Simulated scan of single mutants.
Amino acid sequence: MNRAERLSAVLDLLAESSQVEVEQIVERLGVSPATARRDLDALAQQQLLTRTRGGAVAHSVAYDLPIRYKNQQNPDAKAAIARAASALVPRGAVIGLCGGTTSTAIADALMARADIMEPAPDPGLTVVTNALNIAMQLSMRPQIKTVVTGGVVHSRSYELVGSYVDAVLGNVTLDLAFIGVNGIDPIVGPTSHDEREAAVNTLMASRAAHAVIVADASKIDKRAFAAIGPRRLFTTVITDEGATPEQRQRLSEHGYDVIVAS
């Protein structure tokens, strides 16, 4: 585990109970007490935590995540998809992330990247997002430039939706956009339960040189209410090993480049 990954892991430990002790870091990460203390000091200098005698406490955060982010389904599949998505992102890229549990996992994977988290004059990554939870996560990483769209908060998902989003997304260009979906049908394409989220996702994808659908196997061959399109807006689908060979073949036959994450 390199230093950037270790610092990210310390913050994850801190998030579990809002405080962490040096002994916990030593036990969980397998480092020396001196290394644990240096890591806490480094994070305190970045104002990501407050040092205490023998450990640290988290800065107060004035929000709590919706239940969908706490009890996500298929976490292993989504973590695998997140790693595959992260592998497509070069350092210094400008990417779009919509809301949802898979996009949240992608944000986690990007924050664990040593090349992105390396201190440098220019951002290691620029992320444009309409998801408040992702923006809050990324705002703790000074190496990542975080751009939040305008909009009205959707209380179910903590996503910003509505016409105000257009003001930001209509004036940016993205290298990549990762779009989570509620369903992906080979013929109909990607769909969402909510037409407002679908509209934002469509616009975000249209601003990207490469728009990627991220969907675990449970979403394949499913249709939801609102189309995210037009049909040829997306060229790539990242899914997990739960997708059957037949499902992968159907997606390929209808023009998708299918990446199976493991």
Rank of each mutant, 00 (worst) to 15 (best):
A77R: 06
A77I: 13
A77C: 13
A77N: 04
A77K: 05
A77W: 10
K78F: 12
K78A: 00
K78R: 09
A79M: 13
A79F: 14
A79R: 10
A80T: 13
A80R: 13
I81L: 05
I81Q: 07
I81T: 08
I81D: 05
I81W: 08
I81M: 11
A82F: 15
A82R: 14
R83G: 12
R83W: 05
R83P: 04
R83L: 13
R83N: 12
R83C: 10
R83V: 13
A84M: 04
A85N: 06
A85S: 11
A85H: 00
A85L: 15
S86L: 12
S86M: 11
S86Q: 13
A87V: 14
A87R: 15
L88C: 05
L88Q: 12
L88S: 10
V89F: 05
V89E: 02
V89M: 06
V89D: 01
V89Q: 06
V89C: 01
P90T: 07
R91K: 10
R91I: 05
G92W: 06
G92K: 03
G92A: 11
A93Q: 07
A93L: 08
A93Y: 06
A93R: 02
V94Y: 13
V94Q: 08
V94K: 12
I95D: 07
I95W: 12
G96W: 00
G96D: 05
G96T: 04
G96E: 01
L97F: 08
L97Q: 01
L97V: 02
L97D: 03
L97T: 00
L97Y: 08
L97C: 09
L97G: 07
C98A: 15
C98L: 12
C98D: 15
C98E: 14
G99N: 04
G99W: 01
G99F: 00
G99K: 09
G99L: 00
G99E: 02
G100A: 07
G100W: 01
G100F: 00
G100M: 02
G100P: 05
T101P: 04
T101C: 08
T101F: 01
T102P: 00
T102C: 02
T102V: 08
T102K: 03
T102A: 06
S103M: 13
S103F: 10
T104C: 09
T104P: 00
T104W: 04
T104G: 01
A105E: 10
A105N: 13
A105T: 13
I106W: 10
I106H: 01
I106P: 00
I106D: 01
A107R: 01
A107G: 11
D108V: 09
D108F: 03
D108W: 09
D108K: 01
D108C: 00
A109P: 06
A109S: 09
L110W: 02
L110T: 04
L110N: 05
L110K: 01
L110D: 02
M111V: 14
M111F: 00
M111L: 07
M111Q: 03
M111N: 06
M111W: 00
